[in-house]
Amino acid sequence: MTDAEAKFITYVERMPAFPKSVHKVIQLAANVDSSAKDMVAVIESDPVMTIKILKVINSAFYSLPQKITSIQRALVHIGMNTIKNLALSVAAIGVLNPHNKAEFDTGLFLEHSLAVAVLSKKLAERMGVPLMYSSDYFVAGLLHDFGKIVFAEFMPHEFKLALQQSKEHQIDLHLAELEIMGINHAQAGRMLALKWELAENLANAIDLHHSVAQGDLLVNCVFAANQIAKKCHIGSAGNPIIDALPAELISLFGMSLDELIISLGDMSLIKAEVQQFMQA
């Protein structure tokens, strides 16, 4: 592990979740009549809550024949009570400051993450992925840019510079990050996912969401969903560059990016679904 990677891991341990989900989790936990599905909805709409809960479970149960890849799946294995308890311990860390020194808009970031989550699940369904695996696509979309909020919170000056350079020179944000910090958000996310025993394909989806060199369907869906979210301006995670679909993906989905967007139908419905998660 490089110095930059080691530092990154200690940052993530101290990483607080988004204010809305922290408050909601505390509120729901205090109410005996609250439903499990409400609690799940809150957790799964927050990338920090989600990744930390998946971390605890997969690190402890690393020898499970199948990795726990979503909050629902975790629930089936260990029950709501334990999930609630884990969510509370994440909530106890505090709340993410919306005004970080990197001037990175965490609200827009969350919206982008949820848009990619919703879109990659939609793409998975259209590709015939069995229903019970579609939540994995949601999680991969939700977590693909996780590294960025960690940068914004703990390496704000460097990250601010990367954001500026990316914008001024119209270069990919991950390239600017690499040059300034020696690690980009995709590499950082991958390293974390592997260290925490998260699923290999999830680690890949995070790592390869800027390159579709040898992706599996999960990687490909997250890649395409990311471009769609950027092109349709649903939220923003600071990267101005929109990539075209490479030839492999055009043949996979049977169309270009623009055609894919049109074929998804009314984008306002997807935006509404994202808003639902934002409000969860």
């Binding site: 499990a36 799940v40 024949p65 629902q72 629930l75 089936v76 709501m80 229903l131």
Partner: peptide, 28 residues
């Protein structure tokens, strides 16, 4: 041990998905 019950109702879009996860778990 209590077999996990479906936390969703049939109207929810997650209902079937969750049902399948429970089935897969019981199968294993």
């Amino acid at each position: 041990y209590e077999q996990q019950v479906n936390i969703y109702t049939p109207e929810d879009r997650e209902y079937l998905e969750f049902e399948q996860m429970i089935e897969a778990y019981v199968d294993s």
